[in-house]
Simulated scan of single mutants.
Amino acid sequence: MSINNITVFTKGRSPIKMLTCYDYWTARILANSDIDAVLVGDSVAMVMHGHLNTVHADVEMIALHTKAVRSGIGQKFIVADIPFLSHRKSLDTAVYTVEKLMRAGANAVKLEGIDGNETLIKHLVQSGVPVMGHLGLMPQHVNLIGGTHAQCRTNEEAGVLLKNAKELENLGCFSIVLECIPAEIAKHVTDSLSIPTIGIGAGPDTSGQILVLQDMLGMNQEFAPKFLKKYINGAELIQNAIEEFCKEVNSGIYPDASHTYAFHKPTIGSCNQ
Protein backbone atom coordinates (compact mmCIF):
# COMPACT_ATOMS: atom_id res chain seq x y z
CA MET A 1 0.00 0.00 0.00
CA SER A 2 1.36 3.42 -0.99
CA ILE A 3 0.11 6.99 -0.83
CA ASN A 4 -1.04 6.61 -4.44
CA ASN A 5 -3.23 3.65 -3.46
CA ILE A 6 -4.81 5.65 -0.64
CA THR A 7 -5.46 8.69 -2.83
CA VAL A 8 -7.15 6.63 -5.56
CA PHE A 9 -9.77 5.43 -3.08
CA THR A 10 -11.58 8.75 -3.56
CA LYS A 11 -12.55 7.74 -7.09
CA GLY A 12 -15.40 5.35 -6.38
CA ARG A 13 -13.26 2.56 -4.96
CA SER A 14 -13.71 0.57 -1.76
CA PRO A 15 -13.63 2.59 1.49
CA ILE A 16 -10.27 3.03 3.20
CA LYS A 17 -9.95 0.88 6.32
CA MET A 18 -7.59 2.04 9.09
CA LEU A 19 -6.91 1.07 12.68
CA THR A 20 -4.44 2.30 15.24
CA CYS A 21 -1.44 0.10 15.99
CA TYR A 22 1.16 0.59 18.67
CA ASP A 23 3.27 -2.56 18.95
CA TYR A 24 4.89 -5.48 17.15
CA TRP A 25 2.52 -8.33 18.00
CA THR A 26 -0.63 -6.50 16.92
CA ALA A 27 1.21 -5.29 13.82
CA ARG A 28 1.87 -8.93 12.92
CA ILE A 29 -1.86 -9.63 13.12
CA LEU A 30 -2.82 -6.56 11.10
CA ALA A 31 -0.20 -7.39 8.48
CA ASN A 32 -2.29 -10.41 7.53
CA SER A 33 -5.60 -8.52 7.48
CA ASP A 34 -7.46 -6.44 4.90
CA ILE A 35 -6.61 -3.20 6.73
CA ASP A 36 -5.27 -0.63 4.26
CA ALA A 37 -3.16 1.47 6.63
CA VAL A 38 -2.43 1.92 10.33
CA LEU A 39 -2.02 4.95 12.55
CA VAL A 40 0.56 5.09 15.30
CA GLY A 41 -1.54 7.67 17.10
CA ASP A 42 -0.79 9.85 20.10
CA SER A 43 -3.63 7.89 21.73
CA VAL A 44 -0.80 5.50 22.56
CA ALA A 45 -0.20 7.68 25.61
CA MET A 46 -3.63 6.68 26.93
CA VAL A 47 -4.01 3.14 25.63
CA MET A 48 -0.51 1.83 26.28
CA HIS A 49 0.84 4.14 28.98
CA GLY A 50 -2.23 4.95 31.07
CA HIS A 51 -2.27 8.74 30.70
CA LEU A 52 -5.53 10.67 30.83
CA ASN A 53 -5.16 12.31 27.42
CA THR A 54 -2.93 12.49 24.35
CA VAL A 55 -0.90 15.54 25.36
CA HIS A 56 1.48 13.25 27.27
CA ALA A 57 2.76 11.61 24.08
CA ASP A 58 6.15 12.92 22.99
CA VAL A 59 8.41 12.36 20.01
CA GLU A 60 10.38 9.56 21.64
CA MET A 61 7.20 7.69 22.56
CA ILE A 62 5.68 7.90 19.08
CA ALA A 63 8.98 7.03 17.38
CA LEU A 64 9.54 4.00 19.63
CA HIS A 65 6.10 2.60 18.87
CA THR A 66 6.40 3.42 15.17
CA LYS A 67 9.62 1.41 14.99
CA ALA A 68 7.94 -1.57 16.68
CA VAL A 69 4.96 -1.41 14.31
CA ARG A 70 7.20 -1.18 11.26
CA SER A 71 8.95 -4.37 12.36
CA GLY A 72 5.70 -6.31 12.21
CA ILE A 73 3.40 -4.59 9.73
CA GLY A 74 5.16 -5.61 6.52
CA GLN A 75 4.49 -3.28 3.59
CA LYS A 76 1.34 -1.68 4.97
CA PHE A 77 1.18 2.11 5.09
CA ILE A 78 2.00 3.71 8.45
CA VAL A 79 0.88 7.18 9.51
CA ALA A 80 2.47 8.56 12.70
CA ASP A 81 1.01 11.38 14.79
CA ILE A 82 3.02 14.52 15.32
CA PRO A 83 2.73 14.84 19.12
CA PHE A 84 1.52 17.77 21.19
CA LEU A 85 3.59 20.99 20.88
CA SER A 86 6.47 19.22 19.15
CA HIS A 87 5.79 21.22 15.98
CA ARG A 88 5.01 24.60 17.60
CA LYS A 89 8.44 25.57 18.92
CA SER A 90 10.19 26.28 15.65
CA LEU A 91 10.31 25.00 12.10
CA ASP A 92 13.63 23.31 12.84
CA THR A 93 12.17 21.48 15.83
CA ALA A 94 9.14 20.42 13.82
CA VAL A 95 11.29 19.07 10.99
CA TYR A 96 13.44 17.18 13.51
CA THR A 97 10.28 15.61 14.95
CA VAL A 98 9.04 14.52 11.54
CA GLU A 99 12.48 13.24 10.50
CA LYS A 100 12.60 11.07 13.62
CA LEU A 101 9.15 9.61 12.93
CA MET A 102 9.89 8.93 9.28
CA ARG A 103 13.24 7.29 10.05
CA ALA A 104 11.45 5.13 12.64
CA GLY A 105 9.35 3.70 9.82
CA ALA A 106 6.41 6.02 9.15
CA ASN A 107 5.29 6.60 5.56
CA ALA A 108 3.42 9.78 6.50
CA VAL A 109 2.63 12.03 9.46
CA LYS A 110 -0.65 13.38 10.81
CA LEU A 111 -1.05 16.90 12.12
CA GLU A 112 -3.99 18.31 14.08
CA GLY A 113 -5.54 21.59 12.96
CA ILE A 114 -4.41 24.23 10.53
CA ASP A 115 -4.10 27.59 12.28
CA GLY A 116 -0.38 28.29 12.61
CA ASN A 117 0.55 25.08 10.79
CA GLU A 118 0.31 26.34 7.22
CA THR A 119 4.03 26.99 6.72
CA LEU A 120 5.01 23.66 8.26
CA ILE A 121 2.56 21.63 6.15
CA LYS A 122 3.75 23.27 2.95
CA HIS A 123 7.40 22.84 3.94
CA LEU A 124 6.93 19.15 4.77
CA VAL A 125 5.10 18.39 1.53
CA GLN A 126 7.75 20.20 -0.47
CA SER A 127 10.36 18.17 1.41
CA GLY A 128 8.79 14.85 0.39
CA VAL A 129 6.76 14.09 3.51
CA PRO A 130 3.12 13.05 3.00
CA VAL A 131 0.91 14.91 5.50
CA MET A 132 -2.52 13.83 6.73
CA GLY A 133 -4.68 16.59 8.21
CA HIS A 134 -7.02 16.30 11.17
CA LEU A 135 -10.13 18.43 11.78
CA GLY A 136 -13.21 18.33 13.99
CA LEU A 137 -12.47 17.05 17.47
CA MET A 138 -8.74 17.48 18.00
CA PRO A 139 -7.70 15.58 21.15
CA GLN A 140 -4.51 17.61 21.62
CA HIS A 141 -6.79 20.62 22.24
CA VAL A 142 -8.60 18.88 25.12
CA ASN A 143 -7.55 21.49 27.67
CA LEU A 144 -8.64 24.35 25.42
CA ILE A 145 -12.06 22.99 24.46
CA GLY A 146 -12.85 21.52 27.86
CA GLY A 147 -13.18 17.84 26.98
CA THR A 148 -13.69 15.42 24.13
CA HIS A 149 -17.14 16.13 22.75
CA ALA A 150 -18.68 16.38 19.30
CA GLN A 151 -17.74 19.41 17.22
CA CYS A 152 -19.16 21.44 14.35
CA ARG A 153 -22.76 21.72 15.59
CA THR A 154 -23.61 25.09 13.94
CA ASN A 155 -23.66 26.41 10.38
CA GLU A 156 -20.85 28.80 11.22
CA GLU A 157 -18.66 26.02 12.58
CA ALA A 158 -19.45 23.87 9.55
CA GLY A 159 -18.37 26.68 7.26
CA VAL A 160 -15.08 27.10 9.09
CA LEU A 161 -14.41 23.36 8.95
CA LEU A 162 -15.05 23.23 5.21
CA LYS A 163 -12.80 26.24 4.66
CA ASN A 164 -10.03 24.62 6.70
CA ALA A 165 -10.41 21.32 4.88
CA LYS A 166 -10.06 22.99 1.50
CA GLU A 167 -7.02 24.90 2.71
CA LEU A 168 -5.38 21.67 3.94
CA GLU A 169 -5.99 20.20 0.50
CA ASN A 170 -4.47 23.25 -1.17
CA LEU A 171 -1.42 23.04 1.10
CA GLY A 172 -0.79 19.51 -0.15
CA CYS A 173 -2.33 17.18 2.46
CA PHE A 174 -3.08 13.79 0.91
CA SER A 175 -6.05 13.06 3.21
CA ILE A 176 -7.88 14.44 6.24
CA VAL A 177 -9.22 12.76 9.39
CA LEU A 178 -12.65 14.08 10.39
CA GLU A 179 -13.41 13.31 14.03
CA CYS A 180 -16.70 13.54 15.91
CA ILE A 181 -18.70 15.78 13.59
CA PRO A 182 -22.27 15.37 12.24
CA ALA A 183 -22.55 12.91 9.38
CA GLU A 184 -24.10 15.42 6.98
CA ILE A 185 -21.23 17.85 7.52
CA ALA A 186 -18.68 15.10 6.96
CA LYS A 187 -20.42 14.11 3.74
CA HIS A 188 -20.48 17.70 2.48
CA VAL A 189 -16.77 18.13 3.23
CA THR A 190 -15.92 14.80 1.61
CA ASP A 191 -17.91 15.66 -1.51
CA SER A 192 -16.17 19.05 -1.70
CA LEU A 193 -12.62 17.66 -1.71
CA SER A 194 -10.55 15.72 -4.20
CA ILE A 195 -8.55 14.05 -1.41
CA PRO A 196 -9.96 11.28 0.81
CA THR A 197 -11.42 11.82 4.27
CA ILE A 198 -11.08 9.27 7.07
CA GLY A 199 -13.91 9.34 9.58
CA ILE A 200 -14.04 8.54 13.26
CA GLY A 201 -17.44 9.45 14.61
CA ALA A 202 -18.21 11.22 11.33
CA GLY A 203 -20.83 8.97 9.79
CA PRO A 204 -20.80 6.57 6.83
CA ASP A 205 -20.07 8.92 3.93
CA THR A 206 -16.39 9.66 4.45
CA SER A 207 -13.83 7.99 2.17
CA GLY A 208 -12.84 5.59 4.93
CA GLN A 209 -13.06 4.77 8.62
CA ILE A 210 -10.59 4.52 11.49
CA LEU A 211 -10.95 3.24 15.04
CA VAL A 212 -8.59 2.64 17.93
CA LEU A 213 -7.85 -1.09 17.76
CA GLN A 214 -8.25 -1.70 21.49
CA ASP A 215 -11.57 0.16 21.47
CA MET A 216 -13.14 -1.92 18.70
CA LEU A 217 -11.85 -5.08 20.40
CA GLY A 218 -13.67 -4.12 23.61
CA MET A 219 -10.56 -3.92 25.76
CA ASN A 220 -11.86 -0.97 27.79
CA GLN A 221 -15.31 -1.86 29.09
CA GLU A 222 -15.91 1.63 30.50
CA PHE A 223 -15.21 3.45 27.22
CA ALA A 224 -18.33 3.58 25.06
CA PRO A 225 -18.69 6.74 22.94
CA LYS A 226 -21.64 6.91 20.56
CA PHE A 227 -19.55 6.26 17.43
CA LEU A 228 -17.78 3.15 18.73
CA LYS A 229 -18.81 -0.37 17.76
CA LYS A 230 -17.19 -3.10 19.84
CA TYR A 231 -16.77 -6.17 17.64
CA ILE A 232 -15.84 -8.48 20.51
CA ASN A 233 -15.64 -8.27 24.28
CA GLY A 234 -11.86 -8.61 24.30
CA ALA A 235 -11.43 -7.78 27.98
CA GLU A 236 -13.80 -10.57 28.98
CA LEU A 237 -12.18 -13.09 26.62
CA ILE A 238 -8.72 -12.36 27.99
CA GLN A 239 -9.94 -12.36 31.59
CA ASN A 240 -11.59 -15.76 31.06
CA ALA A 241 -8.41 -17.19 29.54
CA ILE A 242 -6.32 -15.94 32.47
CA GLU A 243 -8.76 -17.39 34.99
CA GLU A 244 -8.75 -20.74 33.14
CA PHE A 245 -4.94 -20.78 33.26
CA CYS A 246 -4.98 -20.09 37.00
CA LYS A 247 -7.51 -22.88 37.63
CA GLU A 248 -5.53 -25.40 35.61
CA VAL A 249 -2.27 -24.54 37.37
CA ASN A 250 -3.97 -24.83 40.78
CA SER A 251 -5.51 -28.20 39.90
CA GLY A 252 -2.41 -29.60 38.22
CA ILE A 253 -4.11 -29.95 34.82
CA TYR A 254 -1.49 -27.68 33.27
CA PRO A 255 1.15 -28.49 32.30
CA ASP A 256 0.39 -32.07 31.30
CA ALA A 257 2.57 -34.53 29.40
CA SER A 258 1.88 -32.91 26.03
CA HIS A 259 3.39 -29.66 27.33
CA THR A 260 6.40 -31.27 29.02
CA TYR A 261 9.83 -32.08 27.62
CA ALA A 262 11.02 -35.68 28.04
CA PHE A 263 14.48 -36.56 29.26
CA HIS A 264 16.24 -39.15 27.10
CA LYS A 265 18.99 -40.91 29.00
CA PRO A 266 22.12 -41.38 26.92
CA THR A 267 22.90 -44.97 25.93
CA ILE A 268 26.08 -46.23 27.56
CA GLY A 269 27.89 -48.64 25.29
CA SER A 270 29.91 -51.63 26.53
CA CYS A 271 33.63 -51.29 26.96
CA ASN A 272 35.72 -53.60 24.83
CA GLN A 273 39.21 -53.79 26.15
Rank of each mutant, 00 (worst) to 15 (best):
1 M>F: 00
1 M>S: 08
5 N>E: 10
6 I>E: 00
16 I>V: 14
20 T>Q: 08
23 D>A: 07
24 Y>F: 04
25 W>L: 07
25 W>P: 03
29 I>K: 03
30 L>M: 04
34 D>W: 03
34 D>P: 02
37 A>L: 09
40 V>E: 07
42 D>W: 04
49 H>W: 02
51 H>Q: 12
59 V>W: 02
62 I>A: 01
69 V>S: 08
70 R>L: 06
79 V>W: 01
83 P>Q: 06
93 T>Q: 07
95 V>E: 06
96 Y>F: 01
103 R>S: 05
105 G>K: 03
107 N>S: 00
120 L>W: 01
128 G>K: 11
130 P>F: 05
130 P>H: 05
135 L>H: 10
146 G>K: 10
149 H>R: 09
153 R>H: 07
154 T>Y: 09
163 K>H: 14
168 L>Q: 14
169 E>Y: 05
174 F>N: 09
175 S>R: 08
176 I>V: 11
177 V>F: 01
181 I>Y: 04
182 P>L: 04
190 T>R: 08
195 I>H: 02
198 I>S: 01
198 I>Q: 01
201 G>I: 09
209 Q>D: 13
214 Q>T: 13
220 N>C: 12
224 A>Q: 15
224 A>S: 15
227 F>D: 14
232 I>S: 14
232 I>M: 12
236 E>N: 15
236 E>T: 15
238 I>W: 13
239 Q>C: 13
250 N>L: 05
255 P>R: 01
259 H>E: 11
263 F>H: 09
265 K>N: 12
265 K>F: 05
269 G>K: 11
271 C>D: 10
273 Q>A: 10
273 Q>M: 05
